[in-house]
Amino acid sequence: MALDQSALLDLLESLKAADADDVIRHALQAVLQALIEAEATAMIGAAPHQRTDQRTTQRNGHRDRLLTTAAGDLELKIPKLRSGSFFPSLLERRRRIDQALFAVVMEAYLHGVSTRSVDDLVKALGADSGITTWSMTS
């Protein structure tokens, strides 16, 4: 579907008015979510609500996954399956933060820095969630 010139100009104006970081974060989230859904579809053998003979199992909802990136925190939805398990290959299991950020937190802990100060430091480094949500999501 091609957009006409006025629609493209409207889109350009809305992108200019929006925060560039927000646009990048939403675009990255949409691309990653589409890749996750495509990989799940390939593994299952059928798209959501599609009936095929190649289907190996059914989807059973989603589970939330917070991914911290340089663009900000992304809220992704990982498909759950009725039988078997699925985890997208583009994500690493049990990895919630970048290794460099993890090293900073560990070093601060070893030096006796308070949790609140470390949380402020992590937020300043770009992780919107801070460290307070790590214990809840790990």
Rank of each mutant, 00 (worst) to 15 (best):
A2M: 13
L3S: 10
D4C: 11
Q5D: 10
L9G: 05
D10K: 10
L12N: 03
E13Y: 13
K16E: 09
D19P: 01
A20L: 15
D22V: 04
V23Y: 07
V23A: 15
I24G: 03
R25W: 01
H26T: 02
A27G: 06
L28P: 03
Q29F: 08
A30F: 09
L32T: 12
L32M: 15
Q33R: 04
T41N: 06
A42Q: 12
G45L: 07
P48F: 06
P48E: 02
Q50W: 08
R51D: 08
Q58M: 10
R59N: 10
N60P: 06
G61S: 09
G61T: 06
D64P: 11
L66S: 04
L67D: 02
T69K: 02
A70V: 05
G72F: 03
D73T: 14
D73L: 11
L74Y: 09
L74N: 11
L74K: 11
L76H: 06
I78T: 02
P79Y: 03
P79R: 01
K80F: 05
S83R: 13
S83M: 04
F87P: 11
P88N: 08
P88M: 06
S89A: 13
S89N: 05
R93C: 06
R93L: 02
R93Q: 13
R94P: 07
R95K: 15
D98W: 01
F102W: 06
F102C: 13
F102S: 13
A103Y: 00
V104S: 06
E107M: 05
A108E: 04
Y109H: 09
T115Q: 13
R116I: 09
R116S: 11
R116A: 12
R116C: 01
S117G: 00
V118H: 08
V118N: 07
V118W: 02
D119A: 03
L121A: 05
L121S: 03
V122L: 02
K123S: 04
D128H: 04
D128W: 02
G130D: 07
I131L: 13
T132N: 15
T132I: 15
S135D: 12
S135G: 05
M136A: 08
S138W: 10
